[in-house]
């Protein structure tokens, strides 16, 4: 089973990212579950969501304790939350950041999702949309296929800029 934890802020689309990722995995003919952890969050508060991907039916509902992959949609969360908590040995962290980030004992990948969203003008109510471009990055990492990523995005959004942003992220991420 491949387990993913996504850190974001309320309103940034972490929950939608989890759902898109589950949808894409499902299109890849795998079993997947996506679950947000709901606290009493408000716009701007740190939130986490979880995705499990497996070849068999997933019967586990409890939270992911040792993820294989951690996604950080908002780097500023790292000041207040230990995003690496429980990471599998050899696990990977994907961080939305324009600059390289150095973290001990884990594989770190960075990609400027905010910059990508802004470059295609994927902005809603003043905030760049991060949940669709991150799918492109995950496709590049091989977590999901590129086709399924696009299909999942098109299934949820009609605005083609979402797909463009995912494409841009796919091209930009160096793995």
């Amino acid at each position: 089973m491949f387990e993913i934890r996504i850190h974001s802020r309320g309103g940034q689309g972490g929950v939608t990212a989890a759902r898109l990722l589950a949808m894409a995995s499902f299109l890849d003919k795998k079993h997947a579950t996506a679950a947000p952890f709901y606290g009493a969050e408000r716009r701007g508060a740190p939130v986490v969501s979880f995705v499990r991907i497996d070849d068999q039916q997933i019967k586990i509902y409890s939270q992911i304790r040792s993820p294989n992959l951690i996604i950080v949609l908002d780097g500023s969360i790292m000041d207040s939350v230990d995003v690496l908590q429980g990471i599998q040995p050899g696990g990977t962290v994907l961080i939305n950041s324009p600059h390289p980030v150095d973290l001990p004992n884990v594989n770190v990948l960075t990609i400027d999702l905010t910059g990508i969203a802004l470059s295609v003008n994927l902005v809603v109510a003043g905030s760049p949309i991060l949940n669709t471009p991150v799918l492109g990055a995950l496709a590049k990492m091989g977590v999901i296929t590129r086709e399924s990523a696009e299909a999942a995005i098109r299934g949820m959004f009609t605005d083609e800029r979402n797909v463009q942003a995912a494409e841009a992220a796919f091209k930009e991420l160096i793995v």
Binding site: A22, A32, T33, A34, A35, Y38, Y61
Partner: peptide, 12 residues
């Protein structure tokens, strides 16, 4: 159905 655990989880 269980709140959040089932109401908010996404499955096929």
């Amino acid at each position: 159905l269980d709140g959040f655990t089932l109401s908010h989880i996404m499955q096929s």
